[in-house]
Amino acid sequence: MPPLLAIPFPAIDPVIVEIGPFALRWYALAYIVGIVLAWRYMRALVLNDTLWGPRNRPTPVDLDDFVLWGTLGIILGGRLGYVLFYNPAYYLANPGEILAIWSGGMSFHGGFAGTVIAMMLFAWKRGLSLWTLFDLAGCAAPIGIFFGRMANFINSELWGRPTDVPWAVVFPNAGPEPRHPSQLYEAALEGVILFLVLRLLSHRFKLLQRPGFLAGAFACGYGVGRSIVELYRVPDAHIGYLSGFLTMGMLLSLPMILAGIALMVWSVKRTPRAADQ
């Protein structure tokens, strides 16, 4: 029997509405809302002249066209990243399941890589500054992350380790032990707090005028936040701990932290080229 202080899991049906073979799930809605709001935020950023100084930036129409590219990068990269990083043996034996996104299984790090590739291709095709696109995406990405983690909570997945903290939650598919609501920790750290930090850097310190800095701040901030939450989150059962307390999430976040720091340092030290102006 769980302790009296444990919070029972709210009875939220993961399916919002079902009409015949069609079912709208909270998880799908989270992706849709996150992508739409991130796109609208990026549009608001490029329309704010006070943030940019002489630096060139994409037009709102460029961002409208980029939405499809970015969405494909998120979905395809997220799915393939999960297949390659988290369960390759299963999908090697069941290749027909690789594209079955509706059955679950998405990787943030794979989605990140897929989005980076999409941005590289789109910037090349349109003749845009890649660093500018990276910065804009970094500023907006925490919005999508927030909604994605809230959907993880509603789905009762990616829950945390057993604990006796007063806000522990008893998840319906995780046994009787109260656990850290690690999805909510991630929504707060990688979503709300990271968004506010990047908002401060872009609006108060005008760092959109330093190509690459905000992209680096996002990569580093996400990696640090994810690594912290990994201390409270249960790793995937078929992977477990890689060594001691090290998890796959930590391992994949370390390159993001190092690359983010290097990118911020490079951005501060470099002299912007004419192509950035």
Rank of each mutant, 00 (worst) to 15 (best):
A118E: 04
G53K: 13
N152M: 08
A23P: 04
V197N: 13
E177Q: 15
H238E: 08
T115H: 00
V170N: 10
I19N: 10
W159A: 03
M106Y: 00
C220R: 05
L196P: 00
L80F: 03
Y241M: 04
L37W: 07
A38D: 12
D276L: 09
G212F: 07
F218C: 08
N173R: 13
T71H: 02
R273N: 10
R204E: 07
T71S: 14
Y27E: 06
M119I: 10
W167K: 03
G70N: 08
P176E: 13
L47V: 04
N152Q: 05
S129G: 07
I12D: 03
G34V: 02
A217M: 05
Y90I: 00
V224S: 11
G148F: 05
L194I: 02
L45Q: 14
L37P: 01
R270H: 15
F122A: 03
K206P: 07
N173G: 02
A38Q: 10
A274H: 09
N152Y: 07
R126L: 01
L92P: 02
F171R: 04
A137W: 15
R179W: 01
N173Y: 15
F22A: 12
G244F: 05
V46N: 10
M120E: 00
I261Q: 09
V192G: 04
W266Y: 13
L184E: 10
I19V: 13
P162N: 06
L231N: 14
L45M: 15
A6V: 04
